[in-house]
Amino acid sequence: MSYCVNCGVELAESEKCCPLCQTEVVNPRSPWKEPSTRPYPPRLERLMKRIDRRYLALILGAFLLLPVFITLLCDFLTGEGLSWSLYVLSASVMLAVWILLPLWAKQFHLLSFLALDGLAALLFLAVVERLSEGSWFLPLAAPITLCFFSALLLLVWLCRRSPAGRWLSRIALGLLFCSVFCLLVELIVALYLSHQLVLNWSLFVLLPCLILALAARILDSKQKLKDEILKRMFY
């Protein structure tokens, strides 16, 4: 008969340590021996923990390869060489970087993946421009894509640095991200179309977003006010 010195409960003969606090119970008069029969058998019923991500990546990869092979085959059979199948090929590469890479990777590095996603998007847009013989990639698509992914990386990095529970600050950051991104998009588009730095519609996004972000930030710093609102919004 042994008792846990920490919890005061008596331990059944099967218990080497107290199951409540994990303290080993040492009784010099009756040292613990593995009983011939335990309350429960040792066999565990195992559940599959989660979907095998690498296996899923392989299946999705196989599906992604199908349209690539078919279009390549069509291209070569019609004797045109690599032409329109490059659209499918580059889109598949982009999807592979966006979806398959995070699934395949052993560790999930969100910032690195986001940076790679940006590069893949740039590559895809460059291929589309080259195939369509346009001239919009460098002045329009590349700056917008770079702006988007840079701002997104900054947002994720800042959100990660903000302490847990400061969800209002995160909302404020998200609003700032939206407003700055809209501003940059309008500037880039205006430069491309009229070679002038003119702001118009983005101001309608910028101002409300800035006001709301400021309000959220102030609200987040006033704990009493937050409590009061939560109390009054109780449902």
């Binding site: 919890c7 005061g8 409960v9 008596e10 331990l11 059944a12 099967s14 218990e15 080497k16 340590c17 107290c18 199951p19 409540l20 593995e34 335990r38 309350p39 429960y40 040792p42």
Partner: peptide, 20 residues
Amino acid sequence: FCRLVQLGIPVKVESNEQWS
């Protein structure tokens, strides 16, 4: 269980832990 013990009620515990 500690509360029960503090209230003077003896408790004997067993578990499904695999100590070995």
